[in-house]
Design a protein around this nucleic acid. Sequence first.
DNA 1: ATGGTAGAGGATCTA
Length: 256
Amino acid sequence: MKLATWNVNSLKVRLPQVIEWLKMNQPDILCLQETKLTDENFPEQEIAAIGYHSVFVGQKTYNGVAIISKQKGADVLVALPDFLDEQKRVVAATYGDMRIINVYVPNGETVESEKYSYKLKWLPALNRWVKSELKNYSKMALLGDFNIAPEDRDVYDPEIWLGKVLCTLPERDAFNNLLNVGLIDSFRLFEQPDKSYTWWDYRMMAFRLNRGLRIDHILLSDALASTCVKCSIDKAVRKQERPSDHAPLVVELSNY
DNA sequence: ATGGTAGAGGATCTA
């Protein structure tokens, strides 16, 4: 069983790459963020044509999330249950006995920004919901673009990023609070290459210089973490023509 | 020189 997450930065632009990636990698689950599509424009037929189901929620221009899966999803949810939010950032569904939660956490812009305080309110709401979901599902995965680099080793230059959005202490505390409710950062279950990142700014030749951050994550409940045999970043995707600024992150689970 | 690039949409906003 293979689960993956990928911020595609416009599914309209990236659809050929997504189709190609699905054919090549055959994941059971692919979580997408920043689809930037309203639901009527979601390319459900193109994805169905290669044997995949979709659940999605989106809006014009910004945000938007989707779960692409081999199996049809059940108990679909498209928003945080106790947080009023016009922005489409959450989709969850159940596949067999596995609960999949896909999130596009607010970016926050700068610490002075109202978007930052929105982010710091959004994260506890996610935490409350994840906590309640864990009571119902022992096999749970929380995947997505968290817009948080958990530790300094997840940042190409921690000095430059000290106190900046994606790296501030309140954001890192919020991330650790997700681990504290019973989730495990699958990436750190294994030895990984130094300077492993999932996002590189389009500007300043950041990718070529490997100036990146690890802000996309796959968090697993104990029952899933104990079956996890691999977690890796598909960096080759970021080298393609007209890429997303994020690379896919993939986990493999055994016993399925 | 507060820069640079990408996406959406059609002037800026977001990242």
